[in-house]
Design a protein around this nucleic acid. Structure first.
Length: 112
DNA sequence: CGTCTGACGATAT
DNA sequence: TATATCGCCAGAC
C-alpha cells in the first residue's frame, strides 16, 4: 500500500497486535490505535489493507462478521478464525467473552 | 469544493 | 429484538 493517512497506519499497527486465536472489535481497535470512538474509520481502513494484515481478527461489537459488498471475504474471514480455534454459535456469532483480545486498557475491556 | 459511500457503534424508541 | 439517527474520516467523482 502506498502512502496512507496517519490514522490508517495507527489502525494497521493495532490490528497487527491482535494475537492469533483472538478477536477484537472495530471500536476496540480504534481505541488501541488512539482514535477514540472512530470505529467506523477502522472498517474503512481495513477495506483498503493488504493481505499481510490479520484483518480477519476484527469483528463488530456484536461478535459478528460485518457484512460487506463481497460475501467471499465474509466466508474467508470465518474460515480463518475457525482455523485459529475461534468458534461460532448457531447464529454465526463469536463469544466475545471467550475470544475477545484482552488488552491492558480498562477502557477497552469492561469485563475481566 | 460539494456529494456520496462505505468492514461501526452508542443511544433512543 | 428491530429500526432509526447521528457522529466521524477518507477517497472517488
Amino acid at each position: 500500500m502506498a502512502e496512507l493517512s496517519e490514522s490508517y497506519g495507527r489502525i494497521y499497527q493495532a490490528v497487527r497486535r491482535i494475537p492469533r486465536g483472538r478477536v477484537a472489535t472495530y471500536g476496540q481497535v480504534a481505541a488501541i490505535a488512539g482514535l477514540g470512538r472512530h470505529a467506523r474509520l477502522v472498517g474503512y481502513a481495513l477495506n483498503a489493507c493488504d493481505e499481510e494484515l490479520p484483518w480477519h481478527r476484527v469483528i463488530n461489537a456484536r461478535g459478528e462478521i460485518s457484512t460487506r459488498s463481497d460475501p467471499f471475504y465474509e466466508e474467508l474471514q470465518r474460515e480463518r478464525l475457525e482455523g485459529e480455534g475461534v468458534s461460532f454459535d448457531d447464529r454465526g456469532r463469536v463469544s466475545l467473552v471467550r475470544f475477545q483480545w484482552q488488552t491492558a486498557d480498562p477502557l477497552v475491556d469492561p469485563d475481566w
